[in-house]
Design a protein around this nucleic acid. Structure first.
Length: 241
DNA sequence: CCGGTTGTTCAGCG
DNA sequence: GCGCTGAACAACCG
């Protein structure tokens, strides 16, 4: 689950803000008692983290590859954690959960979240220049630089800016470096809007494609970078610098 | 029905 | 202590 999906969850959870948790259930090993009867102060998101703030501590939820959630609905499976309120419930499935004994604002740099109001492109640029020998495919997935960007966003951004995933940061022309940073945010917002309309896949230009929509040549599937994550590449339209 | 993955952490090794 | 690799986890889709 990528950053924009977490923002959508945060919005869907709004009706429970300020409400006490009436009941906690689930197969999570966290100290569930701790949450019982506590009021949710605030829901937040940072990159791919969904944060549920209580007084003096917060719960961090990470969905990884296979996690899912339901609001006011259930699935067949036992939830990892279910939070029930007087006006509904949140059910979290197969996710990583961690109780953190801090206020939510402490541990996070909100400036690196590509969907944050306080996103700082210049900060991203400086971080990229510090990682000059990193391939762009790995740089985009670096959560300390582009929190919220996942493998789909990575692929679509690189296709948009016509850059091959194995290009190193130091080899990028300055205009391409700027475009990389700009589109990491732009595409993330496009993802968010399309996902809300249930039409995300319709807009994929390279991800999971067999042929390049632009030049009709075959799209190559490679496992690129140190991370060896799937990259879809059109060798004609995306240049290796 | 099987193969593959919208992700991260950690153990083990040299 | 470092970087690197592979395992582990897990559920859904085509």
């Amino acid at each position: 689950m990528e950053g924009p999906s977490i923002v959508i969850l945060r919005e869907q959870a709004q009706p429970f803000e300020g409400k006490p948790v009436l009941r906690v259930q689930g197969n999570s090993k966290i100290d569930q008692q701790r949450i019982s009867n506590q009021h949710v102060m605030k829901f937040k998101s940072w990159g791919k983290h969904f944060l549920i703030g209580f007084s003096g501590f917060y719960l961090r939820v990470h969905f990884l590859m296979f996690g899912s959630y339901r609001i006011n609905e259930t699935k067949q499976a036992t939830p990892r954690l279910s939070l029930q309120f007087d006006n509904g419930e949140i059910n979290l499935y197969s996710c990583g959960l961690k109780l953190v004994d801090e206020e939510m604002d402490k541990g996070y740099d909100w400036d690196v979240d590509v969907l944050s109001e306080t996103w700082k492109p210049l900060k991203a640029k400086k971080a990229l220049q510090k990682n000059a020998s990193t391939m762009v495919c790995d740089a985009l997935l670096d959560q300390d630089i582009f929190a919220g960007v996942g493998n789909i966003i990575k692929n679509e951004v690189l296709y948009r800016i016509k850059v091959h995933p194995e290009t190193k940061i130091e080899s990028l022309p300055p205009a391409k470096l700027n475009a990389l940073i700009r589109e990491a945010r732009n595409y993330s917002f496009d993802f968010y809007h399309w996902k809300k309309k249930f039409e995300l896949k319709k807009h994929w230009l390279i991800y999971n494609k067999k042929k390049c929509l632009s030049c009709k040549l075959p799209v190559h599937k490679i496992y690129s970078g140190n991370l060896k994550r799937r990259s879809f590449v059109c060798n004609a339209c995306q240049r290796l610098y």
